[in-house]
Amino acid sequence: MKYYFSLQFKRFLRWLADSGVPAFIALPFLIIAFLAASKWLFIQTAFSSWIYAIVAMFVLLPLSDQLRNAQLKMLFSNGQLWQLRIIENIILVAPFVAYLCFEQQFLPAAGLVPVAALLTRLPTNVRYAKVFPSPFRKFPFEFSVGFRKTAWVLGTAYLLMIPAILVVNYNLGVFALIMIFLTGMSYYLKPESQTYVWIYACSVQNFLLRKMATALICISILSLPMLLIMLMAFPDFRLITLAVQLLGYIFMISVVLAKYSAYPNEMSIPQGILYGVSLTFPLLFLLVIPLFYYKATRKLKPLLE
């Protein structure tokens, strides 16, 4: 088991090296970024400790991946497996617990540890045998696949519109609209296998245009009903709502380009930082979009032309 954890640490260092940043820079940076993001969240709202605890639980979810757990099951005995899973969940959740204690939020901090241990018991043998209907069936693959994985998030976003309208809370409505866009953007975070790009019989420019057009059509299908509700429910904020929608479209285009600018790898840490900073200062996209486009054409050329 000791070897397993040292191997995971080595893999983490290799991932950092592949991301293009030396570990001695990336590790302190990640710690500072974590602390800064935590502090920012705690300044925003009174419910931050609970949101923080939920975020921590989401961080643990990838460890419950079905394939990953099936492989671990083959390697370790049952007792060892649960021990190992509990230890890795607690290691991951430890920084969150420490920060909650720092903020003197002892109740959510105390709750997080047993929840992390319990999450190891999440059923991992789920085979999605029943096909969940997707309105994007004719637009394979990002939205058709992504919709099935995140339908509950999209449903939650639409449900949030009910209290937003009932208590006339515009911010909550905008949050729901942003949630739709962020969910759509998440469909473009993981690079697909190279054969899924290679199959296209078109130029790089055409490929990128097709991908961007599909992203815009599909995100419009998801967001336009909400946009209409927002425009009708909050007529005084029409301009701001339309600006949010427009910004959402720009974010969609940029995430498509960002994905292929690193292709076939995942976005590197410097690219991720650049993208994250641009999300905070959208004017930067005027520079970042052409840069990502240029990089994407270079990365895709060997596969398409």
Binding site: Y128, F132, R137, F141, S144, K149, Y196, I199
Partner: peptide, 13 residues
């Protein structure tokens, strides 16, 4: 890809 039907795979190709 995860959660892609056979029909969608053929449609994509």
């Amino acid at each position: 890809l995860s959660r892609m039907t056979g029909w969608e795979y053929l449609k994509l190709l």
